[in-house]
Each structure stands twice: as C-alpha cells, then as structure tokens.
Design a protein around this nucleic acid. Sequence first.
DNA 1: AGTGTTTATTTAGCCGGCTAACTAACACCG
DNA 2: CGGTGTTAGTTAGCCGGCTAAATAAACACT
Lengths: 156, 156
Amino acid sequence: MERKGRHQSIKENTSYTLAKTCKAHRVAVGGLLAQVSLHPGQEMVLVELWQDDGLRGGELATRLAVEPPTITKMLRRLETCGLVERRPDPEDARSFRVHLTNEGRELEKPVHRIWEAAETKVLAGLSSDERDTLRELLLKVRANLEPGFEHVQKTV
Amino acid sequence: MERKGRHQSIKENTSYTLAKTCKAHRVAVGGLLAQVSLHPGQEMVLVELWQDDGLRGGELATRLAVEPPTITKMLRRLETCGLVERRPDPEDARSFRVHLTNEGRELEKPVHRIWEAAETKVLAGLSSDERDTLRELLLKVRANLEPGFEHVQKTV
DNA sequence: AGTGTTTATTTAGCCGGCTAACTAACACCG
DNA sequence: CGGTGTTAGTTAGCCGGCTAAATAAACACT
C-alpha cells in the first residue's frame, strides 16, 4: 500500500526538516533580537542598509524577496522607532531613499554579535568539514528555490 | 581591524543562509498550497491531525512549537473552512479535541503531492549522498536550536 | 501637447506568529 | 468542604508577510 511515494509522512521530507529547522532558528534569533527591541525580520532591512545606505524602497523589497506592501509597513515602524528615515528621491518623485539614522547605525555591532551567537548555536557539534558542507548544500538548495539567486561554488 | 569575528557581514553566516533558504522554501510551498486554498502553516496542523486525529489544542501547539493563541486562531479559520471541527473533551471541560472532517481528510493526498513536488525542487541537482548529508546536518542543527528535539542518528 | 501605459508606492484587509492579560475548570490540600 | 494554585484556552493587540486595488508620477507614442 502507498506505493506512490518514498515517504510515509511529510515529516520524513528533508523539506519538512528544513522548514522546522528554520522555524527553530527564527525563534532563537527572535529571542536574541528582543534584547535590542527588534522584531524578527527587521534586522534584514538593517543588514541591507548597513551594506548600502540610501536604497530605494523597491530595491529593498527585491533584496529581501518581499512584496512592496511589507516594506511600506516595516519602514513606517522602523521610522517610528527612529532607526531609519525616508528621504525623497531627487531623481524620481515616485520613489524615496531609505537612510539609516545614527541610532540605526549603532545597532550594527549588537546585531552582528547576536547573529554570531546564533551562528555558534546553529553549528554547535559540527566539524569544520560539516560546516562547510552544510553551507554549500544550503546555497545549492537556495539556488534551486529562489529564481535569480545563483550560487557560485567556492573555489575548492 | 574587526578581528573579533570571522565574518565581515551577517550575510556570510550559515545562519543567514539558513534563514534565506527557508524563506525561499516557504514561498515555494506557499505557492503550491494556494492550489488547495491553504495558507502556509495551516498544512502543518493537518499533518499532525492526519497522523493523530483528535489531538487536544494544547498538544497541537506543543507539536507545532507554536503559542496557544496561534492555535486558537488557526483552528477557528480551519473550522470555518470546514477542514476540522472542535469537540469537547469528555475528560476535561477546559479542553477540546480537534477532529478532521471528511474534507480535511481528503486534503491529505493533494498536500502530500505538493510536499513531494517541493522536495524534488529542493533536492534538485544533489547527489544521493548529498541528500543524506543535508538531511542529517539539518537534523543536527534542529537539535541544537529546538530544546526538546533530539535527533537520533540513523544507523549508518 | 495629449493620451495611454508602465512603474513606485500606499491602502485595506487577511493570515501566521507573538506577548500580556483574562477566564474557567481542574487539582490539591488543609 | 472550601480556598489556593495550576492548567487550558481565549481575547486584544501588535508585527512580518501576502494579495488586490488604488494613487501618482514617469515614460512613450501619436
């Protein structure tokens, strides 16, 4: 019976394990982010801005692989918190540029430390080889799932 | 400079890649689940019920690693859709049992197929060894992150 | 120039998820 | 028996995410 698939239950899927692992990860990071009064997801906006301040709203949405309305609301809240500010785009009156405030810039190190703590927890008990392998495999999977994301294999 | 950590940017973290990979996965599965009018996350409730019909609300929350209010709202919606029904627990008047309706049961195969499609997409281009390795590594990471989740190594 | 189309963003409203605060039933124990 | 504390769920309200529909500026073409 049930000869169609390899799996008795969805729970056997690697896909399922990926989802559950990620949920656990989000919970873990979320708990740490609360220390700096950030909600899970908001740090991703800041990561992009720390790298390239002054992005346009649409570009942010693209980079985060998120729909525009999500950015609208997140930016409103981040602006209310005083972490970013929106400035009109001189080249296009439809657009705006998102800039970090000093307060936003000051969060970089704390959030960096939080992500390092998460990294440590995630990789605990894995050998150096296993860590590299996991990273490479996740990048491959991401390339499979995310159109437009291309994984360039590390020079091995 | 910046001798403290190995990473220049959070984007180098395996942790970051895990989060991004999972987001892509959620989007992919979500797109497919729309075919059966399910929102991402709802299928997890059904997975538990397909395995053990008649669970109590609290038990569902525990298994999904979700807070009770989340279950309250999800069940209300699933009930409205006619996929599950709540029946009073004869042994405890505070509690209730969640039972699948016929309609809920009928979703098992379609959702199963959807997850298999996702699985195929996730694992595309990975060798059999790589697939096993990915699965094992994800389980280890999950065990690192999720208190109470223990990964029993497969007999190798 | 004027009309039509495409592009950037917002609004409204829904869903999954959370915390905090509340209610109601059970359980225990003096 | 009755009071106290614990346990199961709900409500309210917030945040990240989505879709559909509206707005408004830029562009494109006659």
